[in-house]
Design a protein around this nucleic acid. Structure first.
Lengths: 313, 313
DNA sequence: TCAAAAGTGTTATCCTTACACCCATGT
DNA sequence: ACATGGGTGTAAGGATAACACTTTTGA
């Protein structure tokens, strides 16, 4: 069996939260007019024993960031064959990673890089102030046209229903990737046009990214939103001490929806994920709030009930 | 940025169920004495546009199997550097896949390949008849010694508690990979010795596999056990029509534990995942059972509550 | 008639969701 | 005093887990 040598890129969505806004580290294009992209580096198996070691070395050297948490997302092999002239992305396969960090005080040191709010790339994913207008104004009309356009293919209408919560189906905040891929297939994001999938350049829907980096970011957001619910990963994004409301705001920022205050409190209290420090925060506005810290001991026993299958016998 | 050319292998755990036993397609080693391995092929980006297309082409050509369901698992870059002389595995990076299929009537056509019960490789994962003896007889004693051996490292004892359900922690059937990796780190599986991690060959714990294939299989089992609970994937393994008891036995076979009959029935009935065909099965033993089929329409709306975070407002 | 497996009904308990209300601080 | 956000209690509804019991076949 003959093998084709391939180059592998490690592409990472480095996420932090500032001012109740989830942000991702992006590097501007080297040439003007090039769209922004995620930090990305090659994997050199001669230098690094494992993929994650290669990634960490690369990230820490380039960004001087202290990434507490790293997780592999997915390996993409089907990047667009029609990348614009002048773009050079020699990787055929790119392995996407999610990294979580606390917002550094100094600006990020990567050349022409900074933390951008991630909803710039996915404005339809932010439901914290209710259903975003962009859905009914700019997304659903063309999507519905697209699903009618090929009516003998019922999967188009089905996908639309499921991904975007049409006709009685509830919006599922975790389907970030599915929604982006649907928009791509419908030719509504710039990347689809750039890859030669559609002839006409669409009106931009969210800010686009280099290569398939926006897809990797969509995967990262989806994974983080899902993981929030069964692993204590939020705390990687929080400062040492925080109030319960601050914690709630970060969870809301990530999952993109508003939560019920009282129930959220009871939730974190009954799960014993946090403990009070005894301190009080200098309140912003009303009554001072108690400060909490993450109970690292909880790293034991955090099962994932998930859905279905009884637990016993 | 200079790039090292790398070869990529696609390694697949092809799973089917026969006689209430989950089985995985394994290929015998080419040389005698070589351990068995999962079917594995190179990815040629020139021939195939996407990874999954490359995989499907490869699998279907080699095995003549009709794989209904394919899912990427994980990309491994840190294979053992001390593979035995004579083994040639040029891949530096291997992408693991899970594929589900129905058991073919004819024997599998891959050279010297066949479907092997997966609990041969992980005997400690089968709790259908209660806690396996191998745990207390051959696994926990050396693991406890290993965790004591380096007492200043408290993570050893913690990992042991969490993975193997010691000291009040419940056994979590989804931690298949974590358990295997713990056994590897403790030097208790043959692969650790083969990779040069430990000096002394351990008493074999389950049947070993080529390269890191057993790790990929562990990942596949873990993923399937988890996914069962929030996606209707079991039905990819079932015949067109089946009784509820047959369905239960397959679920039990995969998740490796016994389930409560009445509640299992109510579960599948209330979720409306199946519908009666009207037919009755020629009973094996007692009263004839109603036959059911999977309601493919259900592919819409199957949310994953996961753990935590209320659903509203 | 008995064993074996299918199938139904009911209850206690816990968790989720929602609602209503009180408390402590700054201006 | 009042606006603002912090914090607590409790009741309704639904899902889960466990139990007991009936039905239909083959031997």
């Amino acid at each position: 069996m003959e093998l084709t040598p391939i180059e592998i890129g490690l592409t990472t969505a480095i996420v932090a939260v500032k001012n109740d806004e989830p942000r991702v580290l992006v590097a501007e294009g080297e040439k003007k007019d090039n769209p922004a992209g995620l930090p990305s580096g090659p994997f050199d198996p001669l230098a690094h024993r494992t993929l994650e070691m290669g990634l960490r070395a690369w990230v820490e050297a380039q960004t001087a960031l202290n990434v507490a948490y790293v997780e592999q997302l997915y390996t993409f092999g089907d990047r667009g064959r029609h990348a614009r002239i002048g773009d050079t992305d020699p990787h055929v396969v790119s392995i996407g990673y999610l990294a979580l960090t606390r917002m550094p005080d100094n600006a990020a040191p990567l050349r022409a890089a900074g933390f951008e709010p991630w909803y710039r790339f996915f404005p339809w994913e932010d439901w914290r102030d209710g259903r975003p207008d962009i859905l009914d104004e700019k997304i659903l009309p063309p999507l519905k046209a697209w699903s009618r356009e090929n009516r003998e293919d019922p999967s188009r209408a089905e996908r639309l229903r499921l991904c975007f919560g049409v006709e009685g189906i509830a919006w599922d905040e975790e389907k970030v990737l599915e929604r982006y891929e649907l928009l791509y297939d419908a030719g509504l994001v710039e990347e689809a046009w750039r890859d030669g999938r559609v002839a006409k350049a669409p009106v931009p829907l969210g800010q686009s990214m280099r290569f398939d980096h926006r897809r990797i970011l969509a995967t990262a957001i989806a994974r983080l939103r899902a993981k929030l619910k069964y692993r204590p990963v939020v705390f990687e994004l929080m400062p040492e001490e925080f109030t319960l409301t601050e914690l709630q705001h970060v969870v809301e920022a990530i999952s993109g929806r508003h939560l019920h205050k009282q129930n959220f409190r009871r939730l974190v209290e009954t799960t014993a994920l946090v403990e009070p420090t005894g301190e009080m925060s200098t309140a912003t506005g009303g009554r001072p709030a108690a400060l909490y810290r993450f109970r690292r001991e909880v790293m034991r026993e955090r099962h994932a009930p998930g859905l279905r299958l009884g637990v016993r016998s």
